[in-house]
Computed example of a mutant assay.
Amino acid sequence: MNDWSWDCNPSQEYITDGLPPGVVAEVERLVTELAALGNEAPKVGRPIDREGGLREFDILGGRGFISFLAAPRRECVYIRDITWYG
């Protein structure tokens, strides 16, 4: 178990505005799992040739993706954007 958490930056209202509730629930589930990875979170998603920095991870079978930043110093995964193709 680790002490990592997740948050939205900017606010959750801004990032999730207009998205279906099911998409928001799936994103929250995935980000909870990313936070559970702890120090391995900066290695998940794209780009695959390096770790750290802004990352992308597909959601719901490629119908969208999340952009996130895993910050080891703060032990937090920050959701930066959700792109939903519908």
Rank of each mutant, 00 (worst) to 15 (best):
L30D: 01
R50C: 12
E28L: 09
A36C: 03
E26A: 12
G64V: 03
S11P: 07
F68D: 00
S11R: 12
R50M: 14
K43P: 11
L30E: 12
A71L: 15
A71S: 06
G38V: 00
P21R: 09
D49N: 08
G86Y: 00
D81V: 00
G64L: 08
R50T: 15
V44D: 00
L37E: 12
C8N: 12
P47I: 09
L69C: 05
S5C: 04
N2H: 00
S67F: 08
C76G: 04
L69K: 05
P21K: 08
R46V: 10
V31I: 10
E26N: 09
D49V: 11
A25I: 00
E51K: 02
P10T: 02
K43S: 11
V27A: 10
E33M: 06
E51Q: 12
S5E: 11
V44R: 10
G18I: 12
S11N: 07
E75A: 13
I66V: 15
A71N: 13
G22Q: 14
P47L: 12
G61K: 02
A41F: 10
Q12T: 05
V23E: 05
E56D: 15
S5T: 08
E26I: 08
N9I: 03
E26W: 11
K43A: 15
R29K: 14
I82F: 01
P47Q: 13
R80H: 10
G52A: 05
V77M: 06
L19W: 06
